[in-house]
């Protein structure tokens, strides 16, 4: 892609999905507020944000990896593995909580590091490599905690449901902290490296960017953030489950696409992914509250998500369609 074109595409690519995402967000929030009577009460806000936070956190983890040009199909099992490690070590004992949480985070980081080494140093294709590691992590999670169980320290579950200043639930604050951390990362040189490597690895390499190092770092950071999502799931549910996060992989990818992150890497950001996760969760709630028959719920939910993704994609690609017809953007 020529520099001028790249700049143009980046401009339109950054603008259009934001519009689509904002439209979707306003639509879903309005619909939720209309249908869910207690939406703007402390209880409603807490319930919604408690559900959103794990999904949004996994989406942010996936975003870090996708922006750098990779993808992680094992991310759901990383969430599961780190959460079962934490819950088994914790076992309801407040004294062991800090150690258990640290071990959970370290597990996530180690999983991410393994993925990063496979993709960046062994140069395996990310889709198949992380598919293979998903078996490893999922199997390890089953070894650590064969059946659902284990207790989370009461302080964590109680703290997770707290409401600050009458209307701001703790999960919302954590979400804000997550977003701020992303902004901080993005402002650093490492953050710019992520985009450079994802946008055009050859050019980044030629510009003396440590491409392999950045890729390993992206996967490791993604694994660590995924571990945070595992802890959020624990705080929300109060006990461990060896399958707790496995379904989140699809949600994380859907959320980041709705949020305007380009799946090929180099464009987008975690802010959009968080909004995407909010939209996804609200759509699920809406289908529930709209009184759709139980047997049709899954179909309606899936169709709406695809429609949302298609809408985001249609608006996002209109800008660089001309560019794509001329040359193959790699």
């Amino acid at each position: 892609m020529r520099p001028g074109r790249a700049g143009l595409a980046a401009l339109t690519g950054a603008r259009m999905p934001t519009v689509a995402t904002a439209v979707l967000l306003v639509a879903t929030v309005t619909a939720a507020a209309l249908m869910q009577g207690n939406f703007f009460t402390p209880y409603g806000m807490t319930a919604n944000f408690a559900t959103v936070l794990p999904v949004a956190t996994v989406a942010v983890a996936q975003t870090i990896i996708v922006v750098s040009g990779g993808i992680d199909l094992s991310i759901g099992t990383v969430v599961t593995l780190s959460s079962v490690v934490a819950v088994v070590l914790m076992d309801g004992d407040p004294a062991r909580t800090p150690l258990a949480l640290a071990a959970g985070l370290a597990t996530g980081a180690a999983c991410g590091l393994l993925n990063g080494v496979l993709v960046a140093l062994l140069r395996l294709q990310p889709i198949v490599a992380t598919f293979a590691t998903s078996f490893v992590f999922g199997g390890l999670a089953l070894l650590v905690l064969p059946t659902p169980g284990g207790a989370v320290a009461p302080a964590i579950t109680a703290g997770y449901r707290q409401v600050v200043a009458y209307l701001v639930p703790v999960p919302a604050l954590l979400l804000l902290a997550l977003w701020l951390a992303w902004r901080l990362l993005k402002a650093t040189r490492t953050g710019r490296y992520l985009y450079a490597v994802g946008g055009d690895p050859a050019a980044a390499y030629a510009s003396a960017v440590p491409v392999s190092g950045v890729r390993v770092l992206a996967y490791t950071a993604g694994g660590t953030v995924a571990a945070l999502a595992g802890i959020a799931l624990l705080a929300n549910s109060g006990s461990g489950d060896p399958f707790i996060g496995n379904q989140l992989t699809l949600g994380s990818i859907a959320a980041l696409v709705i949020g305007g992150t380009r799946l090929r890497g180099g464009a987008g950001g975690a802010g959009g992914s968080i909004v995407g996760a909010v939209i996804l969760t609200l759509i699920q709630n809406l289908v529930f509250f709209a009184g759709v028959p139980t047997n049709a719920r899954e179909l309606v939910n899936g169709a709406i998500i695809i429609a949302a993704i298609a809408l985001a994609g249609l608006l996002a690609t209109r800008g660089d369609r001309a560019a794509r017809n001329v040359g193959r953007t790699v």
Binding site: I253, V257, L263, A296, E298, L299, N301, I305, T317
Partner: peptide, 25 residues
Amino acid sequence: FRVPPLVMTLGMIAVVYGFVRLYTG
């Protein structure tokens, strides 16, 4: 609609299983 194939076909899984659920009860 230019949805990335990975996302489109992942999303279709939910739609197809949703249809299966409706079809079979």
